[in-house]
Design a protein around this nucleic acid. Structure first.
Lengths: 345, 345
DNA sequence: TACTACAATGAAATCGTTTCAGATATTCCA
DNA sequence: TGGAATATCTGAAACGATTTCATTGTAGTA
């Protein structure tokens, strides 16, 4: 039982059965070039020939060899997802990948995933893709205001799209959750519930998202008259610590009566700590969190949330990227996702 | 600002700057073949030549072109992960991918991910990989007893490894969580807590895992004298339904006083329902769940769990697969992961 | 010196595809 | 009827790497 890599003494590629352009050429009696031209819609060919070729290709189940195409044209038909290791948004990776998968279904694109280990994003993986022409385009997430990966790809004029905005002057494709609307909607909701002191909990202060959300929070609390408070920069804080902090918070004299949290993981730690501290959710304290998975609603059916649809984000990011690869201008490839309030009480 | 795909009128690949074998050949004054031979460790070459080539390659930062290698040798240097859409194990996808990523770091392998949408696994995606020689090996998860994907790859003699065992006679590489040990350990723990009626909740009854765990559960309850009860086949049941069922369960006259659950998602639904039904976890009812993420411990620091390290599983699966690709015998590539009890009270 | 043995290197074929420059027919017009 | 203008199709040359086979050079031997 020889395995594939050694099944062929010469070390050459492919089995005898593989259908190539040559197969079709022999079958139809045409030349290689005619077949190739025909398959890619050559207009100088007789209609009869084109039908013949198309028919044969279909009958044989021809699929262009990726290596051949790639070698000749430089097109990889691959898009790369740089997957951040953050676990703030539960189920983020799975949904994002499913979304991308859904969007490339039926296209010739494959998805390669490049896991990022460092929490402090480094441009190395992107540099690798650029240097080795390993993909036709890149999707990155958790974008920073002056993200070095973005800078690098702009400089190289390489197609990419970011999940998150940046502060660069040169426009680039992005799709982002509308954090500002999230923050203001949440604050207004707290105000309508009669809250007086609002606290915003944003874990990671390195992303652009952080800046947007904080600004919008300040603006909204000023407008509604709530007393603002912010807890941030905790990307390295383990959940257990977070939980402990929440417990202590529960017994503070002027503790917040309304909390907004943009991370599911932290919401869980928060909730656990607050409840252990003796507070009743939805009575002593109101909570609104950014929801990306189905976990928290299952657990706390009565807690308000504002949803970001990560699957849809994956689909959108992919569509933007594909359009970019086909040459669309960056300015036309920038979209925001509207937060979806899920008021539950 | 032309984008990459059109930067070159001829439509040819690569910029002028790309370092190929030819670059090295010109630099060293040697021929293409000598350089190639040398780089792949040709022993018939003079040491001096070999040093010269190695030096030049390093200086130029030479990396073999994947398309070239693939076209000539048929080797893709890609491994494919067929990613099941199940969300029972929270954070499964992320950790699995991180694990694989860790294992291929430093190798020439890339990872492509093929999301699976149908909950009822179809062999189409695997067939595609096989037909189009899209990867050198495949990793599949959520394996069924007579998994058609496994059958297909065995028949095609294609390198793969499954996360989960099967019932096929022909041996194949696998790595699996030792569910039997999980079940018996959990039952024993419940017994030691004084439980009388144990319920096993396993969501998906299509996997091999299901069968293993149920068998072991029966054996262990018989051994310890616990009254067994099983809740299963709920792969299509939404969490909210599950939660409702748990709530009803709470008020049953002969309700279980010990529960074992192999899915985090269902554990959450269960816990939510039981608590809403008035039960106190760890007092009225004991719960032990299979833990794959950090979510539940954060939420319920006092609830027992038995951990499966999905990251480690990813690493192991990859190593097995790479060995298989290199020709190792399937029999030698079968491992089990020991469950890691996390007793917390 | 002539012949063999062996080490070191090079030339060429190949993988599958695309594309450009030619090569055949075929048709048109004077 | 000849030459040009059109239609269709083909040949050949890449893209980058690997591998086989041939060639060169050198040394050893009789």
């Amino acid at each position: 039982m020889a395995i594939r890599t050694t099944e062929n003494g010469s070390g050459r590629a492919g089995g005898g059965g593989r259908v190539t352009l040559r197969t079709i050429a022999q079958m139809t009696g045409l030349s290689l070039s005619t077949v190739s031209l025909s398959l890619r819609g050559g207009t100088t060919l007789k209609q009869e020939t084109r039908d013949k070729v198309a028919e044969a290709a279909k009958a044989l189940g021809y699929v262009p060899d990726r290596a051949g195409v790639r070698l000749r044209t430089g097109k990889t038909n691959v898009i790369a997802l740089v997957l951040d290791g953050a676990e703030d948004s539960i189920d983020f990776a799975r949904q994002m990948i499913q979304g991308i998968g859904h969007a490339i279904k039926g296209t010739r694109y494959h998805l390669t995933v490049i896991p990022e280990f460092e929490r402090n994003i480094s441009p190395d993986t992107v540099r690798y893709v650029l240097d080795n022409r390993t993909a036709d385009g890149v999707i990155i997430t958790h974008t920073a205001p002056r993200d070095r990966r973005v800078q690098m790809m702009i400089d190289a004029d390489f197609p990419f799209v970011s999940h998150g905005r940046t502060e660069f002057f040169t426009p680039h494709p992005f799709h982002d959750f509308h954090s500002e609307v999230f923050a203001s909607t949440a604050v207004e909701r707290l105000a309508s519930k009669g809250c007086k002191r609002a606290m915003l909990v944003v874990g990671d202060d390195t992303t652009t998202n952080h800046h947007n959300i904080v600004t919008a929070f300040h603006r909204a609390t000023a407008r509604t008259g709530l007393e603002p408070r912010i807890m941030t920069g905790m990307q390295y804080l383990p959940p257990t610590e977070m939980r402990r902090m929440a417990m202590e918070l529960a017994s503070e004299p002027d503790r917040p009566d309304g909390i907004i949290c943009d991370s599911e993981m932290r919401t869980i730690a928060l909730t656990g700590g607050l409840m252990e501290g003796g507070l009743r959710m939805g009575q002593d304290v109101h909570l609104i969190y950014k929801q990306t998975s189905g976990i928290l609603p299952t657990l706390f059916p009565a807690v308000d949330s504002i949803r970001e649809d990560v699957f849809a984000a994956g689909v959108e990011l992919t569509n933007l990227l594909l359009r970019r690869i086909e040459g669309a201008e960056p300015e036309t490839l920038q979209t925001l996702a509207e937060p979806q309030p899920q008021w539950r009480n």
